[in-house]
């Protein structure tokens, strides 16, 4: 240990040892896999067998969840509000479509290329969101997404414009596993991508990098004054999140074998924010719980009131915001506290 030993002599070597083992325990507990994490992945896997007729809506949930986990990195960890996350989703979707049409229709290659393209856009635009208030960031991200949507619309020779991009069909995964009519293999593939992406996000969240992110979100001035290079961290985070959003967009293209201009529409950016409002931010699984909640709710409401379901979504949004996001994110913690031993330290 490199500290000059002054006070620690007073506390005694024994007490120091007690403090240290306690600190080690606390640090270890941060990363402990919590029971709900295991449950949610087992549950997801079980649906493949238990709900074979629901593959389409489950696919929709998985894609939205991936998109939301990506936004959670930006919003819940780095504290950057965005109203234009669809820019990366849409670019990923178009890239996957074009790649399938002109290069190869093997989906995993398309997925990676789409992620790379979205990541490049994320890196390039990250410099625009480094400074400014929440409002500036909302407007900047919204503006970028609007420009992307209009560009896709205008470049009809490439994107098919308002008619969308079609004329390709997706090959079997790795040339081995075909997409079946019921969407079962597709769903497993989406689930694997979601699982791996969430693992990566989780790893980031518990790394020294992740520790600095929430500090930036909490107090950027102080973060800089404990030595955190705030700008560099935000650029990295935004880029990684963009890659994940690009993946989500590519998955949608692979599901439908079609790219509609709708992938860049404003409502996608808004929906994914809504998903996080439902699921909560900053603990990674908010995107997944939120996507389940949002999609099932939308589905149920559109059956009950096909024309007015947005009214109920709107009402829910108002209630959620008034009740407060903090209370929403806390329920997972509270659940953990009631089951002693399972609790990860603060969120």
């Amino acid at each position: 240990m490199s500290l000059p030993v002054q006070e620690s002599v007073q506390t005694g070597a024994e007490e120091q040892h007690v403090d240290q083992s306690r600190a080690h325990r606390l640090m270890q507990r941060r990363t402990t896999v919590r029971s709900f994490e295991i449950l949610i992945w087992l549950g997801a896997l079980a649906t493949v067998y238990l709900l074979p007729s629901k593959m389409l809506i489950l696919t929709e949930i998985a894609i939205l969840a991936l998109f939301a986990v990506s936004l959670d990195l930006v919003l819940g960890f780095a504290g950057i509000v965005s109203l234009g996350h669809a820019a990366f989703f849409g670019l990923g979707a178009y890239t996957a479509g074009l790649f399938a049409r002109y290069v190869t229709a093997e989906p995993v290659a398309g997925l990676l290329v789409a992620g790379a393209a979205a990541g490049l856009l994320g890196y390039a635009t990250s410099f625009l969101i480094l400074r400014g208030s929440d409002l500036t960031r909302l407007m900047t991200t919204l503006g970028i997404a609007l420009m992307m949507a209009e560009a896709a619309n205008q470049m009809a020779w490439l994107t098919g414009g308002a008619d969308g991009l079609s004329g390709f069909s997706i090959d079997p995964i790795f040339g081995l596993v075909p997409f079946d009519l019921w969407g079962r293999n597709g769903f497993i593939y989406y689930l694997v991508v979601l699982f791996l992406s969430t693992l990566v996000a989780r790893r980031l969240a518990f790394s020294p990098f992740g520790l600095s992110l929430k500090a930036i979100k909490s107090n950027p001035v102080r973060a800089a004054l404990v030595g955190v290079p705030v700008r560099r961290r935000l650029i990295t985070t935004y880029t990684v999140a963009a890659v994940m959003a690009g993946f989500a967009g590519a998955l949608l293209t692979h599901t439908t074998s079609f790219v509609s201009p709708d992938v860049l529409a404003f409502h996608r950016s808004a929906d994914v924010l809504l998903v996080l409002a439902i699921g909560g931010t900053g603990y990674l699984y908010g995107g997944i719980f939120g996507a389940i909640g949002f999609t099932l709710l939308k589905d149920a409401l559109s059956v009950v009131t096909p024309q007015y379901w947005m009214f109920w979504i709107g009402l829910l949004l108002v209630i959620l915001v008034l009740v407060g996001r903090a209370r929403l994110t806390r329920w997972v913690d509270d659940l953990g506290e009631r089951l002693p031993g399972l609790r990860g330290t603060n969120r």
Binding site: S8, T11, S207, G227
Partner: peptide
């Protein structure tokens, strides 16, 4: 070490020891 994306915070045992000593101090 703050830019490490792939490491676990708790695995830096010396850092944890130092943090505990600093907090005690």
């Amino acid at each position: 070490l703050g830019s490490r994306l792939w490491a676990v915070v708790g695995s830096y045992r010396k850092t944890v020891d130092e943090a505990a000593a600093l907090l005690a101090r």
